[in-house]
Design a protein around this nucleic acid. Structure first.
Lengths: 360, 360
DNA sequence: GGGTTTGACGCAAACGATTTCACAACAGGG
DNA sequence: CCCTGTTGTGAAATCGTTTGCGTCAAACCC
């Protein structure tokens, strides 16, 4: 009943070897024979068994993607980018949600090993951990996004520059007491944004004030609570830089409850330019990262590596994409006044090319 | 260099057969031998090759998920539900974005066949198509979400009831001219919501007015444009039922531009209760579907089917989950006044059990 | 026309596990 | 002491491909 290569070969009156070569149009098989094999395959509805092929070739044509949570709009956009490139180049994508927990990450790395996936795109929770060392030992192909890990390729945006852009924008609007609300600062990306914030302040001759810096989680709750704390200060800030749109949403809520006007009383900048930023009222000025592109780059890298190999020893590659400040009403009321259309990135792929990237 | 079962067996001084049994703790191997094998395996860091296993057992322990677009918050929540159950039960999840295009769906079904995945959770673009027939012929295990296809299991929510709930809510608030803006009505779910809307109107003695019904896409653009059209009517509606939160976002935008107050001038209800609903201003009253649960159910179903098989011939099962109306300020200004916290579903799993479901 | 190159094709050995079956070894019962 | 049943173990077949190598005929060269 099972229709395998054997059946195809039999029907075409050739050996399985010939059939195999014909189907993959591999040299060494005559035109006429090939046609006969192809026809036979079509007639009996042959589909190659990829498990068998993998066993033989030790290539699975599948890559993994480990992210903290697919429900987070940032990650789902990246995932979309990875998925597009993967399917376009003939790879399957295996998805894993780690919730940022090392244990779950480890589980997926294990799976990668057992399934013999060809590679992995990885948002690591931390830069050093047992499973990453193991991955290194087994010389897995790993491409990281946003978190630098020694020895592996990395795709990221310039978060420091983003932090500078956001802060400088507020400074140019005349603000001097600018607060920062962030997730835990032990992570590279957040640390970079914070550094950018500091740097912009210092460059403008403003002395950074640590009472205006709130470190916590990236959840809206934290934005909400931190804002309340900030407003209770003797001299509260006139602007808030939330290093995540999700945090910014909490900030806006707290301000709304206090009946403070945004941006007249307090200006707010977010980060990531998810559609939270476009939907909130007022719409959020936010630092955009090319999320889909990040995914596309990571996948392209990984697959190129898989298919072309590498000269050894090699320097790990690092692609740094540029962030872009998108100004909306939460800092400048007039700016969106005439923009009537809403461009939710709810579907459709972005065009993708090497533009905007630079190696390092 | 490669460490396989052979090496483990050799090191433990047994045959590969014994080693295989020991590692899967399959009966027929002595306690002492087993211990030796396990230790040997651990010592040399053995990981079974799943491709080889699949080849032999014709089970891959992997399932596919085909959705239109992972960037759509509705689908990413469902995906999270599917992913959680899959990984909890030891399955890998392969993700495919179809963009609702039949061609891409077909591609993924092909892949399913070739990779010999154990099953597929599927948001089909249409109920009848070549690849679904093919799937039927090859007796693939398919579980559908939201779109009924003859002969296959289905997980859905009661969209008609949801439509009734939304509409009745507006009626109870005193509205009689209630518009509906929807995506294309040829899809079952949307048709059901529309039917619920009609039914609720008729039950309340209101004659449905077709000039108040706008069919188009589910994008925000459509909501925006349809609203403009509705406002241009000689007697415009006092309430709008948008059958998707994304549409509702466009509606709110159009109303805001006309300086119409929501809900005082026009009330708005959305559908899906994505976080768009919680973030927009005013927050949207919306019909909630238990999205993660839908995914969890679908995956549970599929895996149960895979592992336990079925009595043949079987009736396809249909699980219908209950929608729930979440009332917010876009219909009742006072309702959220004291709710200070924001509960963005940006991470974390929901508890999951059979509650709330009924078979059919 | 003999020798050599070429190209098409088949044989059979992998790949790394699972599983069937046969066979020891050993115990207990008659 | 033989027979039977139980339990643990190993040899070998198998899953469906790919691929190295050998064969053979046709084509080519001088």
């Amino acid at each position: 009943m099972a229709v395998g290569l054997r059946e195809v070969a039999q029907r075409a009156g050739v050996s399985t070897a010939a059939a195999s070569r014909a189907l993959r149009n591999y040299p060494g098989v005559g035109a006429e024979t090939k046609a006969r094999v192809l026809r036979a395959a079509r007639e009996i509805g042959y589909e190659p068994n990829l498990a068998a092929r993998s066993l033989r070739t030790s290539r699975t044509h599948s890559i993994g993607l480990v992210i903290p949570d697919i429900m987070n709009p940032f990650f789902s956009e990246v995932a979309r980018g990875v998925g597009d490139v993967a399917s376009q180049r003939g790879y399957s994508l295996l998805l894993g949600n780690s919730d940022g927990e090392v244990a779950k990450e480890e589980e997926f790395v294990n799976l990668l090993l057992r399934r013999k996936m060809d590679g992995l795109v990885f948002f690591a929770a931390t830069s050093v951990s047992r499973h990453i060392d193991r991955a290194r030992a087994k010389d897995l192909r790993l491409v990281l996004i946003d978190r630098k890990v020694a020895g592996f390729d990395l795709v990221r945006t310039d978060n420091e520059k983003g932090g500078v852009a956001a802060t400088r924008h507020l400074i140019e609007l005349g603000h001097t007491r600018i607060a920062l609300i962030s997730g835990r600062l032990d992570l590279g990306t957040r640390r970079d944004r914070y550094n950018g914030y500091r740097e912009a302040l210092i460059q403008a001759g403003i002395v950074p004030d640590l009472t205006l810096v709130h470190e916590g989680s990236v959840k809206s709750d934290h934005g909400y609570e931190a804002t309340q704390a900030l407003l209770a200060l003797p001299s509260p800030p006139t602007a808030i830089f939330a290093t995540t749109d999700t945090i910014a949403v909490g900030v806006l809520l707290a301000l709304e409850e206090r009946r403070l006007r945004v941006p007249e009383d307090i200006a707010v900048v977010g980060y990531d330019n998810t559609y939270l930023a476009m939907i909130s009222r007022p719409r959020l000025t936010s630092v955009a990262q090319p999320k889909q592109q990040m995914g596309q780059w990571a996948a392209t890298f990984l697959i190129d590596w898989i298919e072309q190999g590498r000269a050894e020893p090699h320097e790990p590659v690092e692609v740094v994409l540029e962030p872009r400040l998108v100004v909306r009403e939460s800092t400048m009321p007039q700016v969106m006044a005439d923009r009537s259309r809403l461009d939710l990135p709810l579907s459709g792929a972005v065009p993708f090319g090497p533009s905007g990237a630079r190696g390092a």
